[in-house]
Amino acid sequence: MGTIGNLILRLTIWFLLTSDLSVANIIIGVAIAVLLPRSYTSHESVKAWCRAFQKILLAIPQAYLEAFELIIRPHNAEDVVLEKIQYPRSPGLIFLEIFLITFTPKTIVVKSRADGYYEIHRVLRRAKNS
């Protein structure tokens, strides 16, 4: 799954960049996609990847919603919370999770710690206890 997903990703970028579906270009693209070195072999389940992609599609409207919420009601307080890493074994899914959290405007991952927690910085409407 890891290698095929990798190949599809590289081919997609190649065809978007060149926007040319002639035979020669397809051959060049496939050759480059196969020849480029692979950094690591990952063994995530197909199900985990599908769930991650679903989350990405859901994150886009949610990000716009949060943006409008920030605009309509000013958020002036901020705090830092800890959240548990869901898939601590797999670098690809950790990257996806950090991406999703940081993509929505109200939350930013500040640090992913070695003991299995993210430090997340949030903005709030008003301070909780001060």
């Binding site: 901020e78 405007p105 930013i108 910085h121």
Partner: peptide
Amino acid sequence: LFKLHSLSVADT
């Protein structure tokens, strides 16, 4: 960090 939140609204 606070400016980063509003910049992510603007730039992304």
